[in-house]
Each structure stands twice: as C-alpha cells, then as structure tokens.
Write a protein that binds this DNA or RNA. Sequence first.
DNA 1: TGGGAATCGTTGAATATTCAATATTTTCCA
DNA 2: TGGAAAATATTGAATATTCAACGATTCCCA
Lengths: 145, 145
Amino acid sequence: MAKSPSKPITEHLAYLLAQANREINRQLDARFRKEGVPVEQWRILKVLSDGKGHSMGELAEAVLLNHPTLTKMVDRMVSDALVYRVQDADDRRKVLMFSSDRGKALTQRLNSLALSQEAFIAENYGDKATADLKRLLEGLIEKAN
Amino acid sequence: MAKSPSKPITEHLAYLLAQANREINRQLDARFRKEGVPVEQWRILKVLSDGKGHSMGELAEAVLLNHPTLTKMVDRMVSDALVYRVQDADDRRKVLMFSSDRGKALTQRLNSLALSQEAFIAENYGDKATADLKRLLEGLIEKAN
DNA sequence: TGGGAATCGTTGAATATTCAATATTTTCCA
DNA sequence: TGGAAAATATTGAATATTCAACGATTCCCA
C-alpha cells in the first residue's frame, strides 16, 4: 500500500504564521527604509516612549528579543544617540533604558509610517477581517502562555 | 497641549503576528529538539517529500528563506545525508534537490511531531478559532502578494 | 547566428544572532 | 549575619544570515 501523502506545508498554522509575519514585516521594513531603522528598533523606541525607564529584561520580553541580542542592538542605538542607559538606583543589577529627544522624534516619524501601513492593510484586507484576525491572534497568544 | 499617547505596540498587527509566530515556532522547535532539526529543515524536507526534485529558487520561495541562506542550510543537510543535489539536465543552471531515504524517514517522524502540535493547539484554542485563524491568515497572505 | 541581457545558484566578506560563561548585585534562609 | 543561590546584564566565541559580487548557463532579438 502506498504511503498516504501528508498535509502540505501551506496548511500548517506554523507555516501560515511565518509567511504572514514575514510579508507584513517586509512591508513595514520597506516603509522604515528611509529612516534606516529595523523594525526591532521601532519596537524598542515605542516601548520607551512612555518615558518611564525600562530594564533590559523587561524590554527584551516586550520586543521579542533575547537578552544578548537586545544588549547589542541597544549598543548600536546608544551609538546613534537614540537611547541611553541609567543604572537603577533601587536595584543596581538593573539598567534602565530611556529614549533621548532624538529617539523620541524618530519614534513619532516611525509611528506615523506604521499607522499608514495599518491603514493600508485595513483598506485592502477589510476592516472586519483585520479586527477578527487581531482578536484571534491575541487569543492564541494568551492560550500559548 | 500634551502629546496624545500613541497606540501601544501590542495592538499592532505586525507585532501580534511576530509574537504568535515566535511562540508557535518555539513550541514546534521544542518538539523537534530530540531530532536536532530546526523548523526550516522540516519545511525543506516536507516540500521535497513529493519526490519530484525542486530547484533551489523554488525551494527558497516555498520555505521562506533567501537564496544564500538556503544554499548554506542545504550544505549542512547534504553533510547530514538528508538531501542531495542533482544538476537539472534540461536547464543546467538549475540544481534539483531530492530527499534521501534517511531524509524521508526523518520527515515522517517530524510530520508526526508537527501534527501532534497542531492537535494540541486545536484542543486548547478551539477547533473553530484555529480554523478561522488559518482562513484569515490565508486571506491576508493572498492580499499581500 | 552572435552577443548582450537575464536567470540561477554559489561564494566570501560583513554583519547579526545565539550559546555558554562571567561579573555584579540582591535575596533568602540556616 | 554569613554565605549560598538567584537574578540581571554583558561579553566573547561559535554559528548563522545577509549583501554584493561572481561564474555558468540560457534567453532573446537585431
């Protein structure tokens, strides 16, 4: 008896997520191109835009990067004067990250590029579908943790 | 007037996709751990499991890897005797990739690990939600291309 | 039919990420 | 309270990815 063909890769949730993620990220990266900033740096800047001071661990969690990767990305951003480090006085193991004025200005320009992408997607893909997709993704993430 | 706070990062579609993708991929990777194979190699093996011979370009597209990255990953897989290269007789610029017997056996073990993950997700997250999510992702990908 | 342009895959150098080990500080409890 | 264990961030070496350039082959049309 012949071996039954297995489900094609394109029908796996993991693959669909990877594909969608890649495509949307590509489009966003293309918009960010003129600012010369990768998507991860936008996420960092955005989290820091509350002006509050976030530890590296907290940031790593929030921007989906592991610690050493974040450390090195932050090094680059410090060189570019977008963010700066302050040792936490209450717990001196920690480093608190802040956005500089230059970083804040960049954040606003990136935010508006990102919003325009979201608007573009909602327009082409449909408001309802977009909202449904977001809701389902939130649910999946919640269950997965 | 104070600047209005911008939408939090967690409400952006791009972020939700990245987060969900990361989490699902992590879980899949954990299951693949005992076989010592990254998710990308499973994708490659799965595409090759039709026994037909796929060019590098075709493969790169199918498994969401760019050409140089795929070349080097295939190099490793050839070393592990999972796949092999054959020059295309009809167009000698092309290289056709095939799965070895060893590769095919591994593919089956990985397929069953992947299926068990999908079953786990469907169970915890709900059959309907999973199906809806897949459908919406397919739609998004289609629009995006 | 000759030869420039396009396609396909690989390579090497530059860059980025990851893993394991480290230094520092804090926590906890015997 | 002393000191082992845990938490935090960084570093360096190993690994992986990306970018630009290349070599080989095929396509196309003047």
